[in-house]
């Protein structure tokens, strides 16, 4: 057995994951703060206001990374779902299941910031813009996943059902996205334009990238922590779990 396969298999062991995630979580937290604090500084203070949109353009530094994360996390869930169905890896379904609420939160964050930005820009909190609409549908998909997995009592069955749903969703997501785009170009007057797509200036790109890395690290951090708790919960009663939990209690 080559080393990669051995490495891959070790991740199937809950105890190994528990130990490794305990070691990695602080690093992820550190990286998050390392990118988030300067990112916040540059996006709120260190960057110039947009010459057209003024200060409200700063919402973008939260909005855009949150929207990216929402799609990224759905992709992670679908990949984890495929791994669950193909290799029956316990860890993958744990990752998918703890990712869902985080993904839903990022989607909600993107929607809320989007509508807050829309108020000064478009004069209204909600516009049936193609991207906003598909983001809203993405939120529905996340909530549907959560609703399904929480209503099945058997954890293994819940994981596999969720995996199928995530895969079905991932096949549908591009179709939904493009049909919504097509629909909005048909229905909407072209007065609404999401930012005149000019090349983004360096002074704005840096905080945007910092923030998007910060969001990624935050996600990694939170997934590790909650997956750790989930691993411990699922293996409760086993010796290693009792020992690990006892260690914390002391």
């Amino acid at each position: 057995m080559n080393r990669f396969v051995a490495w891959f298999h070790r991740w199937g062991s809950p105890k190994h994951f528990y130990d490794m995630s305990g070691r990695w979580a602080p690093w992820m937290a550190g990286l998050f703060f390392l990118t988030f604090i300067p990112g916040l500084y540059y996006s709120l203070i260190g960057s110039p206001p947009d010459y057209q949109q003024g200060e409200s353009a700063r919402i973008m530094y939260i909005h855009v990374p949150a929207a990216w994360m929402s799609m990224f996390i759905y992709a992670v869930m679908a990949i984890a779902g495929a791994v669950t169905l193909i290799w029956k890896m316990k860890l993958a379904d744990i990752v998918a299941q703890v990712s869902a609420p985080i993904g839903a939160s990022f989607t909600l964050l993107a929607l809320v910031t989007g509508s807050l930005w829309g108020k000064p820009m478009w004069g209204t909190y909600w516009v049936w813009d193609a991207r906003l609409t598909s983001e809203l549908i993405l939120l529905f998909l996340f909530l549907g996943y959560i609703a399904l997995t929480t209503s099945i009592d058997d954890k293994r069955q819940a994981a596999r059902a969720g995996a199928v749903l995530a895969l079905v969703g991932v096949v549908n997501l591009p179709i939904i996205h493009y049909s919504v785009e097509w629909w909005s170009t048909l229905h909407q007057p072209s007065t609404v334009k999401v930012m005149g797509k000019s090349a983004i200036h360096m002074s704005m790109l840096i905080p945007l990238l910092l923030m998007s890395f910060a969001f990624k690290f935050y996600y990694a951090w939170v997934v590790l922590i909650s997956a750790r708790a989930e691993v411990l919960d699922r293996d409760k009663g086993t010796r290693w779990a009792e020992e690990a939990a006892g260690e914390k209690g002391r």
Partner: peptide, 22 residues
Amino acid sequence: LTVGLRKGGVLLSLLVLPLYIP
């Protein structure tokens, strides 16, 4: 996906309706 569940009806609509949009 929901056939084994007691209260599958409402859940079904949550899962399926977003996929009907296109």
